[in-house]
Amino acid sequence: DTLSIHQLAAQGDLNQLMKYLQQGDFLIDLQDEWGFTPLMWAAAFGEIAVVKYALEKGADPHILGKERESALALASVRGYTDIIVLLLDHGVDVNIYDWNGGTPLLYAARGNHVKCVETLLAKGADLTMEADSGYSPMDLAVALGFKRVQQAIENHVLKLLQSNRV
């Protein structure tokens, strides 16, 4: 009974979360001390049922944490592709960046999440955006030896080149 709405979201406890929200739907966008909403906690821990429910309840997927953390970036760190698709379908910016100069694509590449990289690229992620340290998604893939991520980026570039041919 004492768990916060953020903990309930992270733990995927949909029943308790629904009970909590009986106090008022506005609580769905309640921010914790880091500025994180229940949706952000659920996205970070891969709790897709909670993400779906929160979005149905009108949770705002655009809210950023105190260091510009986004639900999309948090899902990308761990490679939760299905959550990424849901968030993008709700209109979040695929190229949102944070204090680190981090974009969802950079986090997905850093984590070797190939499917996630492919999805973000297909949804228009900018592969030229670099982290503050100057690393692009391709630089990361090469530096870390993530061949499949490298290949996914190369395939995307080839597609772009082909579609630009007159």
Binding site: Q7, M40, L74, Y107, S133
Partner: peptide
């Protein structure tokens, strides 16, 4: 029984441990 509390999510330093560009 109550599940343990989850620690706050965070975004990692992307280039930690990588050589400078």
């Amino acid at each position: 029984t109550q599940m343990p509390l989850y620690t706050s999510p965070s975004l990692p330093n992307i280039t930690l441990g990588l050589p400078a560009t």
